[in-house]
């Protein structure tokens, strides 16, 4: 146990250092943009992971929480001049509260009924925002330019401060998940995922724990919404509530391997550069080639590696170990 903890802490520190070193090689604005997207989707993938990978509630409507968070902070900032940092906190709390209210009926739904319900939620909330004049309806809101700096959460000269902010958010999320995985909450989430009836028979209040998972996941996702709003300095329903955000989030996590901490980070680190690079190389977005490759990735992953990259690594590790043992056994026989 002790050794495990030290090793994992060392891994987290090493991870943070690697994260801090990336900007040395990322000197162009485009490569910095890729880094920002990687950390953003890593956090989003982890948030999805809490709800789907651990607690077993597969959501394909995370954009609902994402967009809501983006709008909360933007409305606060545009209409009331609230600092984006405070806005981000409000966004997290508001989406978590919204998710709890929505989650109460939704937690009754199981498996695919839940998944389809989240799609429906994502579509409904988008329509509401497209027709809500007060928040700019389909045109959305522009966040007024301010002097750059951490106080205004706007950086114009370089994208790196965004990256560091995102990295901090990612490390916080990872630390939370590390603690969660080793606590009662993590075990209860997994128990609900594996078999709700058994879990409640063992004293797990499934509704309460499902709501916790949904609220935490939504809260983090909402804060990411604020992050993207500050990054692009505008919010618009078609952009913030886009269904492809929901799909990308699920994909990043599944590709890396859901139900464990490192999976979504790996998934994001590999998929986001691919998607951004194909988009840049093969013309502007709208041709669909980037998403086409995405789709192919999902299919291939489901067919050949349903446990994700982490599952693949584990299998390779196991076979290497088995081989080594076989070799060891052979050596014993020879001597």
């Amino acid at each position: 146990m002790q050794r495990d903890d030290i090793r994992n802490l060392a891994m987290l520190v090493a991870f943070a250092i690697i994260g801090l070193l990336f900007p040395i090689v990322a000197t162009t604005r485009f490569s910095q943009h890729i880094l920002v997207m990687v950390v953003l989707y890593a956090v989003l993938g982890e948030a999805w992971n809490i709800m789907a990978g651990y607690a077993g509630m597969v959501s394909i409507g995370q954009a609902a929480f994402f967009g809501l968070g983006a709008y909360v902070s933007s409305v606060l900032s545009v209409k009331y001049g609230v600092s984006p940092w405070l806005g981000m906190l409000c966004a997290g709390l508001a989406t978590a509260a919204f998710a709890t209210v929505i989650g109460l009926p939704f937690s009754r739904l199981r498996g695919r009924y839940f998944a389809i319900g989240t799609i429906a939620l994502g579509q409904m909330i988008k329509v509401v925002f497209e027709n809500w004049q007060w928040v700019g309806a389909a045109t959305g809101l522009m966040i007024p330019l301010a002097n750059q700096g951490f106080a205004s959460f706007q950086f114009h000269a370089s994208k790196l401060p965004y990256y560091y902010t995102g990295l901090a958010l990612l490390l916080l999320t990872l630390a939370f998940m590390y603690i969660m995985e080793r606590s009662k909450m993590g075990y209860y989430f997994k128990a609900i995922r594996e078999n709700e009836d058994v879990a409640s028979g063992l004293g797990v209040n499934r509704t309460a724990y499902k709501l916790i998972a949904i609220a935490v996941s939504a809260g983090i996702t909402g804060m990411c919404g604020t992050f993207l709003a500050q990054y692009s300095l505008y919010v618009e329903p078609e952009y913030m509530f886009n269904h492809s955000i929901s799909v990308t989030i699920a994909l990043v996590a599944v590709f890396g391997g859901s139900g464990n901490i490192i999976g979504p980070v790996l998934g994001s680190a590999i998929l986001m550069p691919i998607s951004e690079l194909t988009r840049a190389w093969l013309g502007s977005s709208g041709t669909g080639i980037d998403l086409m490759i995405y789709g192919a990735f999902i299919v291939l992953m489901c067919v050949y590696e349903p446990e994700g990259l982490v599952g693949m690594a584990r299998r390779i590790g196991a076979s290497i170990k088995a081989q080594r043992e076989r070799r060891g056994a052979a050596r014993c026989q020879n001597s």
Binding site: Y187, K190, R193, E194, V198, A199, L202
Partner: peptide
């Protein structure tokens, strides 16, 4: 009915 994907110890820990 057990929690299939978890180890025996983890099952009992729940």
């Amino acid at each position: 009915q057990v929690l299939q994907g978890m180890s025996a110890l983890e099952n009992v820990m729940v």
